[in-house]
Design a protein around this nucleic acid. Structure first.
Lengths: 335, 335
DNA sequence: TTGAAAGCGTTACCAC
DNA sequence: GTGGTAACGCTTTCAA
């Protein structure tokens, strides 16, 4: 167990000061080129490894960007993370990831934990947070980005879209195709706030269009996925026939609903229409293809990355930026 | 731009030394209970946030565990990550995640980057690495865990299973059900080494059982998913009829294959059998359910977490541990 | 039960 | 071009 090789050791070996080593390793032009070369070589020979922890400590810059996702096991969020990760790669920032399991209390705990690492910015999924979380973030002078939502009271920058508006597009489309008896299938409790926004959007638009009241079909606590959609349908049994359209909180749920409907002998979309959300791969590959809302998951991540680069470069002085990336109806064969 | 609140500030406010604050916040029993309480409260009031960077610097322990995944957008790897994350939560370790996009060169770059953060252990997915990666890891005296494979030359601990053996189970099952003309659908190039292992496993077992030579159907470069499976099938056209079973590298690919076969009017499993890998949710929800290989994705992560806890606690002195978590045939309705 | 001193490895700042 | 000094916030160690 040999002691760690530090700049001091390199400096001694070369016969310069640690300061010069520090400069040389950062390719500081003011250091004599030959010295620089020598230092690099000796550092290599000695097996010197740069200590990022010490740097982060000294400069008070961690090189981290903290990110919270509701779930890592969700193709949309994973794509956003990839877009963010790839986009931020150039600036040398590293992502510190945590998942909230769709709970604002978990988010608070997570934010607290992430903040101890001194991130240089924090990216939150969604616009709903506990008061404590908001206070924690305000206390720091930290760039904050909320994504995947258009919060009414943003904490900082926003790159998202309106879930209610997206659902309105679906409901309008269904109504125009003659559907009237809508059911909404989503997570049961109020933990999935984004899901609740979608539900409320459906209810509001249906009311506006004069459709009968939308029935809420409980698929269990968040996160809900394929199997929960299937279970919700099989729990309905013969009551299924009282609907002519099922609006689902996400594509995986819609796929479960679709499979179960077919197992039960229903014709989709003849007997019943089904819609999803998110334009997951399964929506476009399944037979029939699922009507859904296209969101630019990867682009959201990329845009956040671009925004953060501006922030880090000091090019974002004119207050928080709010970007609505929008969403679009993707017509499939289930409606 | 207020300055950061440190232990010093808390100490001053309470009227004790920073040392006592440090102890109190770590719930050191030797600190008077009342003092401890007071300190916690004042810390809260002042909005004090513990500085892990400083701790990491002082103690020379980063509190990080580095993890590489081929892709974050893969339900299996995401589950493994969750298992690892949840399992490691108690020990206070934070995961530092990076994805390799199924390329060993990218893995090397990633490992290099992750190592600058002084992780206390590193977890790699798969058993294939560049020589440089191996050298980098050997040079450090760092616990290494390889998962999702049983490498022939492990770098350290292993928690995985044999991909070839798993495929052998599938091929045996297909042969026993009277299938003979097998096609294998997977990623084209050699970058997805785990996929290549699966293919070789299929070919070997088929040969052993005296089946005709297995044909390789190229689904494009890794990562391949639903749409690639569908495309591979539609590219086959009428040649599809020359197979009576299609073995796919993963469930998403199998689902794409299944959908496209049905679009083309084939009866599954009447005309053709389809198998996947990984027991993804889509396999058990789709209609018909897809025959697949069940792997304990989440459990792999949990086991890695348990192993690492042992390592950190010093209870893992007797050489590297190698665990074969195995895999099992999950019969669906596509075979 | 509490505190003082020292130091982890790096870099900002100034001096030469 | 180069170097000395001090400091980032915490914890180990020893002393009281």
């Amino acid at each position: 167990m040999t002691a760690r090789v530090t700049m001091r050791d390199v400096a001694r070996a070369v016969g310069v000061s640690p300061m010069t080593v520090s400069r040389a390793l950062r390719d500081d032009e003011t250091v004599n080129e030959k010295t620089r070369h020598k230092i690099r070589q000796v550092a290599n020979d000695l097996g010197y490894v740069y200590d990022t922890t010490a740097q982060a400590f000294r400069t008070q810059k961690s090189g981290f960007v903290a990110v919270t996702l509701p779930s890592i096991n969700n193709a949309n969020f994973a794509e956003t993370f990839r877009g963010l990760s790839d986009g931020l790669g150039a600036s040398g920032m590293q992502l510190l990831l945590g998942s909230t399991n769709y709970r604002v209390e978990k988010e608070e705990e997570l934010v607290r934990q992430l903040l101890t690492r001194n991130p240089e910015a924090i990216v939150l999924t969604g616009g709903h947070h506990t008061d404590e979380t908001r206070a924690l973030l305000r206390a720091r002078n930290l760039p904050v980005v909320e994504m995947w939502d258009l919060p009414t009271e943003p904490l900082g920058h926003v790159i998202g879209f309106s879930n209610a508006e997206a659902m309105a597009k679906l409901v309008t489309h269904l109504a125009e195709s003659g559907r009237r008896r809508l059911g909404y299938i989503g997570a049961s409790d109020l933990t999935d706030l984004r899901g609740a926004e979608r539900r409320d959007g459906v209810i509001a638009k249906a009311a506006e269009l004069g459709l009968p009241e939308v029935e809420f079909l409980d698929a269990g606590p968040a996160p809900v996925s394929m199997r929960h959609g299937a279970q919700a349908v099989s729990a309905l049994g013969a009551n299924l026939r009282s609907f002519d359209a099922l609006v689902c909180v996400s594509d995986p749920v819609a796929f479960g609903v679709l499979s179960e409907c077919r197992r039960m002998g229903l014709d989709v979309p003849g007997d019943i229409a089904i819609t999803g959300f998110g334009n997951f791969e399964v929506a476009s590959v399944s037979d029939p293809r699922i009507t859904t809302i296209g969101v630019t998951a990867r682009e959201i991540g990329e845009q956040v990355a671009l925004l953060l680069e501006d922030v880090f470069a000091g090019n974002q002085r004119d207050g928080p930026r709010v970007v609505d990336v929008g969403s679009r109806l993707v017509r499939g064969e289930t409606s």
